[in-house]
Design a protein around this nucleic acid. Structure first.
Lengths: 222, 222
DNA sequence: CGTTGTGAAGGTCTTCACAGCC
DNA sequence: GGCTGTGAAGACCTTCACAACG
């Protein structure tokens, strides 16, 4: 959320600049699009087509990576993939803890995209003694109190909140107490965290509301 | 991501103006925040606090609704709730079909927030004959071929794609063929649809990538 | 008084258009 | 010729600041 004042990072081998969040989101999609690409080189136009965007934007976005496109040809597929992976912090393995072993937590734990895209689920937690000890999607369900232990390399971990709204804040507090500073919140409520902790929120009802609003409009005009 | 057709909308006879998508998303959150509100009136500052936003923005957003705030007091809770519901197209019941009865589809079908926020799941579909006929989250699983039948009031329906990437486009085509013009796509791939069909995309990997990128930054500066 | 409603300012993101390069 | 890289323009979004008002 609150990012530090724009400051140059000393990354080995280059000067990185701040990349807007929207661009990061699209980079993620470019990466997915590249996964299905067998040609050794790809043009901004082709990449836009495959990722659902537009060519000028692709070029602007890749500009943030100091991407090595070749004029008249396009971008080297393998090199571009590496650069995007690097800029998304996927050079090292990212570990994910999921809190909440209900329907959503189960879906997340079993989501094949996680592993494919560089994330490893390293713990699924639930407060219910009925669930602790069972297994979902191949992961043992652990007690909430074990979060701390699991989070031994805090800075590389992401915590996912997949519990009902009423429990979201308490879970957030626990994640923060365990040293996790990066949280994805699926509960339909905001959570408060100390400065330095980054929360992203995904709310299914909100997505439906947006579609519903636009339906209303097309009903009005149609 | 595909955004709404950039057409200017002239609602006949009305004073309704276009509401930016970001504002619509926040309206959804204001609505959620109001659900937990018992006071008869609420200030922009209080609403901002409860919804995780900022007061000036709340006032700007509510301005799009011609909201009837009372200076020195705040907004009438019940009235505001109604206005937001109306502007989100929740005056009528919105029906949702979910395609894909895997982990994610099951989680969505069982998500209590849907019903609470004005949406009714009216069909869960899957291509697997093994699943058709079973029940998930209280909904019978139907065959894909029944989508058309289910979508008798097309304009009020929202289709949710909860299938693997490889099947997403085919499912999108089927939804469109059934007359559905509003789609929420959870598959990690874009889908192509004809003009007039509105697609929103939610990608879990992308959310994780954004967090991962920001972790990288804080590792660099920390 | 406290709070809304809103023009104006400031910032960010997207699109355009074309120079530059292979 | 074809495609990238990018400044400039334009659209959009957020924040500020304060007048208007109950």
């Amino acid at each position: 959320m609150r990012n530090p004042p724009p400051r140059a990072l000393s990354i080995v081998g280059g000067v990185e600049q701040k990349i807007p969040t929207n661009t990061v989101a699209r980079l993620s999609r470019y990466l997915a699009a590249l996964d299905g690409e067998s040609e050794s080189s790809i043009s901004s136009e082709a990449l836009a087509e495959k990722s659902g965007g537009n060519a000028a934007q692709v070029r602007k976005d890749l500009g943030y990576l100091n991407a090595a496109g070749v004029r008249g040809v396009g971008y080297d597929t393998a090199g571009l993939r590496n650069q995007i992976r690097h800029s998304l912090g996927l050079g090292q393995e990212r570990r994910v803890v999921i809190v909440g072993a209900g329907n959503l937590g189960t879906a997340l734990a079993g989501y094949p995209g996680f592993a494919e895209r560089g994330f490893r689920v390293c713990g699924v937690f639930d407060k219910s003694p009925r669930l602790v000890g069972t297994e979902i999607a191949g992961h043992p369900v652990l007690a909430l109190s074990d979060i701390r232990e699991c989070a031994s390399s805090p800075s590389t971990m992401i915590g996912v909140i997949a519990v009902p709204a009423g429990a979201a804040q308490i879970v957030a507090d626990m994640l923060v107490a365990a040293g996790i500073i990066s949280i994805l919140n699926f509960a339909p409520t905001p959570v408060h965290v100390p400065p330095g902790v980054d929360v992203r929120r995904v709310d299914l009802s909100t997505e439906l509301h947006i579609l519903s609003h636009r339906l209303l409009r097309s009903e009005g005009t149609g």
